[in-house]
Design a protein around this nucleic acid. Structure first.
Lengths: 367, 367
DNA sequence: TCCTGTACTGAATCAAGAC
DNA sequence: TGTCTTGATTCAGTACAGG
């Protein structure tokens, strides 16, 4: 794309093909509310890795993850960060995800560029790949950095109460426990292999977008890949702009995002974990797509109803709050276990929402 | 301290007063097994912070945590890292702990200095300070970086099996859940205030030292503070060198460490890796009469068989070689651990030949 | 329908020692 | 120094076949 081309309007909910730095430079300045970036990690792998059973691990070998040196990587980082900074509104913010291979360099470059770090967030994976050789600690997490445009800018979006509601009325912490992207959510190519080597789970983006954007905001992802950011943005009523170089990813992302509208209910089968049960906030059911925002919940006799919001809070006709608080409220009680009180409709029948919690627990293990 | 002063011997289990860079430069090169560093975090606090009940939070306001700019902090970081690198043995390693204020800069400087990151470790606090103003996520973790002296150096200490044992026979992950330092462990000064604003829990150092040092190793802490590293090192039978500028911290650390009782050597034995057990060639089993030449070995399903020869080689129907080579051959694999693949018959049952190796090792140990 | 066993997989800077 | 041999090493989860 020529340097002279400029977008005359914001290309909302589109995927633009090309180099992300050139594309960002062609967008109007101060036009975007949030940048979410999952840049190349600059892995430096040597040779093949086999599991103890001699099967081969299918690692990241793509050309886009290859950099000649730290210096080259730093230059690339500084350039795309500068471009992102220009298009961000003064009240905007940026998220970047990475691992120990690159996150220190990205974080330092962020600070050098004038961004102001609000939090570093640890994504603790419930099901990471083990260390097969027994030579290190299992690499069980990735790091996200959330930063605003500058220290001076005191206005920024942080939906504190939504995050608190998502975590059952406790402040959301800087460590998030979420499974990696597998199963039906993981996109496959024509041959049945994974379409993208590093697809992120939608639950992660759900939390990021819910925390730091409002409906109608514009979210730009300069490393769009197969479009997790776009899919979640659409689901949550945010606008996205996706930048991506590769045809095959764009194709997959387009098909994926188009299908988001018809969000069909997931298979709700329940597997009970035998292990000790980890705490599952109600908001996680929404985050993980087991309950859509807007779903109506009922008491066992169907005499009262309440609606689920995107942050896991409930709304009844005269109050808003957690499943427990609203359950107590509608009964005129001091307290109530919302997990057994509230039911959702499936196949015309009412089932307690606790069933869904059990499903999540089974998927999470003890973590 | 003058630049000319050099230590003629390793000042083991001492606290040296002065600037950590000058002191490290006065130590002999390649003399230390591990550096554990808890450098100033370069916090950038503005004004006082009060709790919701209007009580004042007693934060870090000490002069040693003040730096004029990122550039100043980076220069300081590069200098102490270079000094630490010089005194580290080639097989040595370094740990650094920090928060989002400084850890990205420290991590990038580590990589630039040639250190090779093995893991970043997340210390997940069970009881973090909440975010009183509701403006961010609760900052509930700190980050540690574990790095070896270089990527080429393949020899380093990692007590994999001890870590696995510590985690109920599952690989130790990169996220550690530990409470912050409170209660009796937290040192107080004469007035009853906390003696040091950022005292780390001993449990954290316990895990670090157990994982990456052996009894008798020398552990240097350039930012010794009130001596958590020294206290745990003494307890675990490691030698420490503490560098610290401030009188009051040195005084507190000395009293603290004096009160620590070392564990008995026998209690400090940890689960050993099989790699460190004496090597027993398969032929030794034949040599020592545990297997007669001509004995037939089977895979676990008895679908293939091979015969033992007097020199410890195996013969199957179309090949001859070591237990590993023939094990791989009959399975059509690249590699195979013959010790667990091949089984011998005893009392009509199949048992892995590894049992016989263990028997030999036990006999060798008592010999 | 439910349970069991087998096969497969995920951002991974993944070996060490003898000769 | 490189080459070759030895032999150490995995967790949570999904998918599917078979009983």
């Amino acid at each position: 794309m020529g340097r002279s081309r400029q977008f005359s309007r914001i290309p909302a909910n589109e995927i633009l093909q090309g180099d992300c730095i050139e594309l960002m430079n062609a967008l109007p300045e101060k036009s975007v509310d949030l940048v979410f970036a999952d840049p190349p990690y600059n892995l430096q792998l040597q040779g093949d890795l086999t599991r103890p059973d001699q099967s081969k691990v299918n690692g990241v070998t793509d050309a886009w993850d290859q950099f000649a040196s730290f210096e080259t990587y730093d230059r690339f980082t500084r350039e795309w960060l500068a471009a992102a900074r220009r298009i961000l509104k003064d009240t905007g913010a940026i998220w970047v995800i990475g691992s120990y291979h690159n996150i220190f360099r990205v974080g330092a470059s962020l600070q050098d560029a004038g961004f102001w770090v609000m939090n570093d967030i640890v994504w603790r994976k419930t099901n990471p790949m083990p260390n097969f050789r027994g030579t290190r600690f299992t690499n069980a997490h990735e790091t996200l950095i959330w930063a605003t445009k500058s220290a001076d800018q005191k206005k920024y979006t942080f939906n504190y109460d939504a995050m608190k509601a998502l975590n059952e009325d406790l402040q959301m912490r800087s460590d998030w426990v979420l499974p990696i992207c597998t199963g039906a959510e993981r996109l496959k190519d024509e041959t049945g292999d994974k379409a993208h080597p590093t697809q992120k789970p939608e639950s992660l983006l759900h939390r990021v977008l819910l925390a730091t954007t409002n409906p109608g905001d514009i979210v730009l992802d300069p490393f769009f890949g197969t479009g997790t950011t776009g899919a979640v943005a659409k689901k949550l009523g945010r606008n996205f702009i996706g930048l991506e170089r590769e045809d095959k990813y764009i194709k997959a992302a387009k098909a994926r995002i188009k299908a988001v509208q018809s969000s069909k209910a997931e298979d709700l089968k329940v597997t009970q974990s035998k292990r000790q049960e980890p705490r599952v906030p109600f908001g996680m059911l929404v985050e993980r797509g087991l309950l859509e925002p807007g779903t109506v919940l009922y008491d066992p006799r169907r005499s009262v109803a309440a609606k689920v919001r995107a942050d896991g809070s409930l709304v009844c006709k005269d109050a808003t709050g957690s499943i427990h608080k609203i359950g107590a409220h509608v009964q005129g009680l001091e307290a109530c276990n919302g997990w057994t009180f509230w039911h959702f409709k499936t196949d015309g029948k009412l089932k307690p929402i606790d069933l869904l919690r059990q499903k999540v627990r089974a998927e999470m293990g003890t973590a």
